[in-house]
Design a binder for these strands. Structure first.
Lengths: 342, 342
DNA sequence: CTGAAAGCGCTTACAG
DNA sequence: CTGAAAGCGCTTACAG
């Protein structure tokens, strides 16, 4: 591996000139004759400046670390993929690489700490909340990052009081979905949540209860069920609720994948959608429209959230702006899986 | 941002000891009293060693660069996501971070060159072939990487002669799918390929022709159609073929997403699957089983390919082993979208 | 058990 | 237009 020193020697110039020229081919700090000699040496030795050395020396890496405390492959989740795509599109456009440190650690906080160790020194960070984080975890992670003194933005967490860069969603979707179903006349709405301890599920359950209350309805613990965000587990949870004899005329699912499982469990029980049971999903995953019947779902602007977060971080890194919060709106996509309850 | 120097000063020891201790807490090269003083200083100053400086100094970054010449968000493609998940699971386990350099450049080769610039100095590279690469592009990219002198592995390209680390798939899937349909009695098989200039599509078309030939059938250019790998475009391409009056009793699609579009176009034309037309997809994407009817598809072990590629690269980086090639097998998942042609 | 010194491969004032 | 020198924040022989 040739270094800048070899180029300098071969071209008979100083490292300074080589460096300046390579970083700015149109510089006037090198004569065209010098440039030609450098070019020749570079070509001959197949020189490529070491990005790590550059980063250290220039105190600018053009790399952002993405910290996701999740011990399951990132891209396996449609939600994650979509958000990462948003980040990617803006970071790449701005010339930033994305660095994903390994996910070591028994819990979300030790995982984030390890990831931070691996990303320290880079230009900025994106910190994700995930289903493996409790609210306490999230707060601990944020204070860890704050102490590190690197610009960062927080994504996929409930809207927080802290004065940090953050992108979040306006109303937890369950409020909108529950209200919609209530307005359609449903009174017994089964809520297929994710995991009991996950921050998002807890927040959603809270919103769901509030929606019921605003309609003067009682809260029935039996109506909350957990499908762990996934298709198969939601199917099982739904099947079990059915066997227990829980009564309901509508189901709201915290992910479209779980709605898929609900569809199956309902079909097995001989129930029709929406004739017997109405179903609402969340995320408007691309397959939602292909379900049978097409799924009514709450679209959260996931990709846009990624884009906005990246924008905020780039501004923080390049113009060190003050912390900003962006809150995006949800939208109910009404397809064919809900009907008025008579 | 405190540095190791500040810790050394505060603890009243040399940088050497601090470094040695931080890299190996159980070292005997520091007394327990010294360790305690270092701990205190680290805690007080919230010190975290700079990962970039570490990488440069130790000549080991524990970072692999992933070069994907594709100007569309990576995670938007189910195929990519799955392969990246495979890489991720093994790299993370081995303690490696993954670095994704931005995708700048007008064509696949300038893109890879730019990405290489951004990843030079790191421990290893994964080079992807994509639908934006011709065979020539791929070869150019490989020789560029070879010259860089960094261990690398090649993924998602046809099996190559070059002596480089590579993971690929045994028979291009079309051969298996076409043969299967032929054995089921179909004689006019529409082939929904990706893009005319893409390496994978070209290889697949070649295999498809070979399969026809081995059944003594003539090749009819009319039977190859391009849906650009995506749902909507495949739907349009299928619709057009139908309007042109092309005759066929079966369709093989190079992605399941395109099969989705084919289902729709066929339904619009009043054609039933598999009664009127049989359909085979590729990849066994998770939604394939939820399609109506469930899609018969060729499963290529995408995740496993990622895992194997990562294994090979880790070995190349850590034990610099000789180049290895791994070729994985495909499998036809027979569901309900194909039936015997009478 | 401890430290001074050289070095990783670049960039960046600074002086000419 | 050009170069010598210091420095980025660490690690690693080496000597004691």
């Amino acid at each position: 591996m040739p270094g800048i020193r070899h180029i300098a020697e071969k071209a008979g110039v100083s490292k300074t000139v080589v460096s300046v020229y390579m970083n700015n081919p149109t510089t006037s700090r090198a004569s065209s004759a010098t440039k030609a000699r450098i070019d020749a040496a570079v070509r001959e030795l197949k020189f490529r400046p070491n990005a790590i050395a550059r980063s250290l020396s220039a105190r600018k890496s053009h790399v952002v670390g993405v910290l996701v405390p999740l011990n399951t492959p990132l891209s396996r989740s449609l939600f994650m993929s979509e958000m990462l795509s948003g980040l990617e599109s803006l970071f790449f456009q701005g010339g930033y690489s994305m660095l994903f440190p390994p996910t070591e650690g028994r819990n979300s906080s030790s995982m984030v700490r390890n990831q931070l160790d691996r990303a320290s020194g880079y230009d900025g960070l994106v910190l994700f909340g995930t289903r493996f984080c409790t609210i306490d975890d999230m707060e601990a992670n944020i204070s860890e990052l704050s102490a590190a003194g690197i610009p960062f933005v927080v994504l996929n967490m409930p809207t927080l009081k802290f004065s940090v860069n953050q992108v979040s969603f306006h109303t937890p979707p369950s409020a909108g979905a529950a209200r919609f179903l209530l307005e359609m006349g449903h009174r017994r709405i089964l809520f297929m949540a994710g995991a009991p301890r996950a921050a998002d599920s807890q927040a959603e359950v809270r919103m769901y209860r509030a929606a019921l209350k605003s309609f003067g309805l009682d809260w029935d613990a039996e109506l909350v069920v957990y499908g762990n965000y996934e298709h198969q587990e939601a199917r099982a949870a739904m099947g079990e609720a059915l066997r227990r004899g829980v009564e309901f005329s509508a189901v709201y699912c915290l992910t479209d994948a779980m709605a898929l499982g609900v569809y199956e469990a309902l079909a097995e029980a001989g129930l029709h959608i929406p004739a017997d049971v109405s179903v609402v999903g969340k995320n408007d995953s691309f397959f939602a429209r292909f379900m049978n019947p097409p799924l009514t779902t709450v679209r959260v602007p996931i990709f846009e959230a990624g884009v906005r977060a990246a924008e905020i971080l780039v501004n923080a890194m390049e113009k060190d702006e003050a912390p900003r919060k962006v809150i995006l709106n949800n939208e109910l996509i009404n397809r064919l899986s809900v009907r008025v309850k008579k």
